[in-house]
C-alpha cells in the first residue's frame, strides 16, 4: 500500500521500506593515502589554527579597534562611510548609471542579480564538469565579479583620506574637555576665528579637533598662517606675539589632556 508520495514503511514504523541510502564515494576510490581525522588530521588543522590565532592576537594588540566621537547628528561635515566590505556597494551607488534616477538599478537590481546568481549557481551551472577551464562562462563571470568588487572597493577607499578622518574624529567623552578660557592664548584663539571651525573647547566642528594632535609650537604657528589640508592659508590675522601665545596655548592644552 502506497502512502503519501508513494512511500512505503516497514510495519508501523517510520523507516521506509525501500531503503536506498545516499552513500558518498569511499575515498579509497581516489588514489592516495587517507588519514584518520582524529587525531592526525585535526592536529594539523589546529596547528594552523594556533598560528592563525597568534597572528590574530598580534593584530588586535597592535591595532586597537577604532572608536570615534559619540554620534552627533548635527555634525554636518562628517563623511559617512560603511564598513570596508560594503564599500563596493557604496561606490556603485555613486555612479550615474546606478545612482540618482537609476537608484533602483544600482541598489537592488545589480546586487540582486549578482547575489541571486551566486545563490543559485548550482542551478545555473548544471554541467557535471568541475574543472574551472571546462566551464568558461561560469568561471569568467565569477572572475569579472571578483575584479569589479575589488576595483569598486579600491576606488571608494582611494578617495578617502583615512588618516585625516581618524585624526578629526578622536573619541573624546562629552564634557571632558574644559580648556582654559581665561588665558591670553584663548583670547587670540577667539579673536582669529579659529573658534568657528575648531569649536569653543578645541573639540572641533567643521574643522578637526585640536585636542590629541601631535604638533610642536613652531608647527602650529606655521599651520595657523599657511593652512594645512582643507584649512586655507591666511586664517591668522594678528601679531607675531599673539601667534606665539596661540600656539603655546594649543600645545599646553594638549599636554593637559
Amino acid at each position: 500500500m502506497k502512502k503519501g508520495k508513494g512511500m512505503q514503511f516497514v510495519g508501523d514504523s517510520r523507516i521506509t521500506a525501500d531503503k536506498k541510502k545516499f552513500i558518498p564515494k569511499d575515498y579509497s576510490e581516489y588514489p592516495g593515502k587517507t588519514e584518520a581525522f582524529w587525531p592526525n588530521f585535526l592536529l594539523k588543522e589546529w596547528l594552523v589554527g594556533a598560528v592563525f590565532l597568534v597572528g590574530f592576537l598580534c593584530l588586535t594588540i597592535a591595532h586597537p579597534a577604532p572608536l570615534e566621537g559619540p554620534a552627533d547628528p548635527t555634525d554636518a561635515a562628517y563623511l559617512p562611510l560603511p564598513d570596508w566590505y560594503f564599500l563596493f556597494l557604496y561606490q556603485l551607488l555613486k555612479y550615474q548609471f546606478a545612482g540618482g534616477d537609476f537608484f533602483v538599478l544600482g541598489a537592488i537590481v545589480i546586487p540582486g542579480l549578482a547575489f541571486g546568481g551566486l545563490f543559485l549557481a548550482p542551478f545555473l551551472d548544471k554541467g557535471s564538469n568541475r574543472r574551472p577551464v571546462k566551464r568558461p562562462i561560469t568561471t569568467s563571470l565569477m572572475i569579472l565579479g571578483v575584479i569589479s568588487v575589488f576595483w569598486l572597493t579600491y576606488e571608494a577607499a582611494a578617495h578617502v583620506d583615512w588618516e585625516a578622518k581618524a585624526a578629526a574624529n578622536k573619541p573624546i567623552p562629552p564634557g571632558s574637555i574644559q580648556v582654559d578660557t581665561e588665558s591670553d592664548g584663548y583670547a587670540v584663539y577667539e579673536a582669529n576665528s579659529c573658534i568657528q571651525c575648531h569649536g569653543g573647547n578645541l573639540e572641533g566642528a567643521s574643522g578637526p579637533s585640536l585636542i590629541g594632535i601631535d604638533y610642536s609650537v613652531d608647527e602650529i604657528k606655521d599651520i595657523a598662517v599657511n593652512g594645512i589640508g582643507d584649512m586655507p592659508a591666511g586664517q591668522f590675522d594678528g601679531t607675531e606675539e599673539e601667534l606665539q601665545q596661540l600656539a603655546e596655548f594649543i600645545v599646553a592644552e594638549n599636554e593637559d589632556h
Binding site: 587525531p39 592536529l43 589546529w46 596547528l47 589554527g49 594556533a50 590565532l53
Partner: peptide, 23 residues
C-alpha cells in the same frame, strides 16, 4: 604514536582555548 598525537592535540587545543579565553 596515537597517544602522542592525542596529547599534542590536547596541548594545541588547550593553547588555542587559552589564547582565546585568557583576555
Amino acid at each position: 604514536r596515537r597517544q602522542f598525537l592525542n596529547y599534542t592535540l590536547t596541548g594545541v587545543g588547550g593553547f588555542m582555548a587559552a589564547g582565546m579565553l585568557a583576555p
